[in-house]
Design a protein around this nucleic acid. Structure first.
Lengths: 223, 223
DNA sequence: GGCACGTTTCGTTGATTAGCGAAGTATGGA
DNA sequence: TCCATACTTCGCTAATCAACGAAACGTGCC
């Protein structure tokens, strides 16, 4: 049984997929095919095997199927293996730079402690309906109003062909932040209003002076 | 690189070998062939691959070659994998029963906290010469005398076709105890003098009343 | 309904590799 | 010196499995 699990990790293409998923974000089969550098059908077979060995779980959403690591235990094993590989038997894998920990982009939405704090605030204010707890969110009436107030067309956002709002496990915080079309729309607004600016050579986001005034205080976010 | 390591673990015969080595004891190629249920030549090939991927290390000793895990990091990964396999994401792998933790046989020598305490005592009294620290021991002049005093023929022990004295990492204590011909000779004496008796249906050793008097006090061992 | 897209299933091919036995190397004892 | 033992190397065979393209399936959009 153990051998079967190790063998599942021990194939280059599958290992690439697994390490790509280590940031906690769920990815589609096609995205992972690109990452692993194999065809779509091959990727599907690999993902099937990873699911069978309980290393990844899949959640169907429309015509997309999102794959993610099954839990922290899996991530722990992968981390252990990379320790063996790099020979850094020492202290810990490279720390996340502070700039990246505070705020960064995760694809098209906001991650980092600011992203997580924002997420918590949305839930606390009951703008987000957490539903059954499967990581899929929806806006409450109060939420519709609040997002409209900062300039987000929730109708158009909802109409996009992608998940509307969902949790994405934050890699540095190990807690969820807001992803999906709504998360992307929020980041767009934050950038448009110059609350944050994007670093040119990394995924870091910096809070501007205006952001400190209009964003941090408005959403009671501590970073 | 990670995939190569995982693949090395991910073969049933190799996995059996690795898990057998998790107790910290070094084993010969032939012993591991039996454990893995493959032929000698196949085992040799497997061990070669495990050595190549730095999962096991080998120490040649006469015509024997002793294989052991390369370090605690490797054991940690194996443990992590078995957590994934058994689904016990919970607290910890089954605890060692107390009887086994105090004293037990490890092949033909004494292990457990008593074995480790004894080992420490021997080193502390400078009976054992730890040499270069590679785990191979020898007796000092004082040690020769002390072992002879309890009835061990050190000459005959040394003449056996096996390692004379060496460290064996204790599985429950995670610290070394005395193995090799000398360790076996000591256990033989301890049993002959009825300091300890062997459990019939396990590897546990029980300290007798006589043992408490003559053994524990003599070697200042706390168990 | 028809189309586009994401994904899986199927069939085939080529490469990798575990397995064995026989022969070779090395060490230690008689 | 010769033999026994421990282990490895070599050559071969059979099985596994990753890879692809083609086709099928399912979902959502027009």
């Amino acid at each position: 049984m153990v051998a079967r699990i190790a063998a599942a990790i021990g194939e280059p293409a599958r290992a690439r997929m697994l390490f790509c998923l280590m940031d906690g974000c769920a990815r589609t089969s096609t995205e992972l095919a690109v990452v692993a550098d194999v065809g779509a059908s091959t990727a599907s077979a690999h993902l099937g095997r990873l699911a069978e060995t309980r290393l990844v779980k899949v959640s169907a959403q429309g015509k997309h199927r999102y794959y993610s690591l099954v839990g922290a235990d899996v991530a722990k094993v992968l981390e252990g293996l990379s320790v063996l590989a790099t020979g850094t038997a020492g202290p810990r894998v490279s720390r996340v730079p502070n700039r990246l920990r505070i705020a960064r982009t995760c694809y098209d939405h906001m991650a980092g402690s600011a992203g997580v704090a924002l997420h918590d605030r949305f839930v606390e204010q009951a703008w987000l309906d957490v539903g059954t707890g499967d990581g899929t969110y929806d806006l409450t009436a109060a939420g519709e109003e609040a997002f409209a107030a900062i300039g987000i067309d929730t109708g158009a956002t909802r109409a996009q062909r992608r998940r509307f709002a969902c949790a994405c496990l934050d890699w540095s915080e190990r807690r969820p932040h807001l992803a999906g079309a709504l998360g992307a729309a929020f980041l767009k607004v934050a950038l448009a209003r110059k609350w944050m600016i994007q670093d040119l050579d990394s995924r870091a986001l910096s809070v501007t002076a205006r952001g400190r005034q209009e964003f941090l205080s408005r959403f009671a976010v501590q970073v």
